[in-house]
């Protein structure tokens, strides 16, 4: 008798998701990266489109300096009066990074590498590149290509679109 499990098709076999990362905060990009990784781990075809400030997450010079914006975030532990003080975003990022390390979560740079290795396709937004004056050389090598939004939708036919 053969092993009676996983003999049938993976239930996620035909699933595809397309995540759009449009924000560049540490707390704003983590959900995208973690969700994408989790999707890959269960065998879902996954693509990520980095656009606007989300481009920072795949920009070589910025990826290690992503911050947590405390202003306008009612869930932050910092009182709104103090949230706008200089250095607060850096402080927030510091505490979040510390917590992530405790939880054995890799930083954004390593997450991007893991995602690439797991087969997630990552794209930069052409328009955002022009807007911020960046070239492909500024991006992490894990980014597959710089494409337009139209291209992205064409590449992810049938996928669930998740805008973060």
């Amino acid at each position: 008798m053969p092993f009676p499990f996983q003999a049938e098709k993976n239930p996620q076999e035909n699933r595809r998701i397309a995540l759009i990362c449009a924000k560049g905060g540490l707390d704003e990009c983590y959900p995208v990266l973690i969700m994408a990784n989790a999707a890959r781990m269960v065998g879902i075809d996954t693509s990520i489109f980095f656009t606007f400030y989300g481009l920072d997450v795949v920009t070589e010079s910025r990826v290690d300096h992503l911050y947590v914006n405390m202003v306008g975030n009612p869930a932050s532990p910092i009182p709104p009066m103090l949230a706008g003080l200089p250095g607060m975003e850096s402080l927030g990022a510091h505490f979040m990074a510390k917590k992530m390390t405790e939880l054995d979560l890799p930083g954004p740079r390593e997450m991007i590498r893991i995602l690439h290795d797991s087969g997630t396709r990552m794209y930069g937004c052409e328009l955002a590149m022009k807007m911020f004056g960046r070239t492909e050389k500024d991006l992490l090598p894990e980014v597959e290509a710089v494409i337009t939004a139209t291209d992205f939708f064409e590449k992810t036919v049938g996928a669930d679109i998740i805008f973060v």
Binding site: Q6, N10, Q12, E13, M41, V42, G43, R113, D117, S118
Partner: peptide
């Protein structure tokens, strides 16, 4: 073995498999 190889060795659901 690295992440990439993990997905090659145990396709689709490397952690579970």
């Amino acid at each position: 073995v690295g992440t990439k190889r993990m997905y090659e060795l145990f396709p689709k659901t490397p952690g579970k498999t």
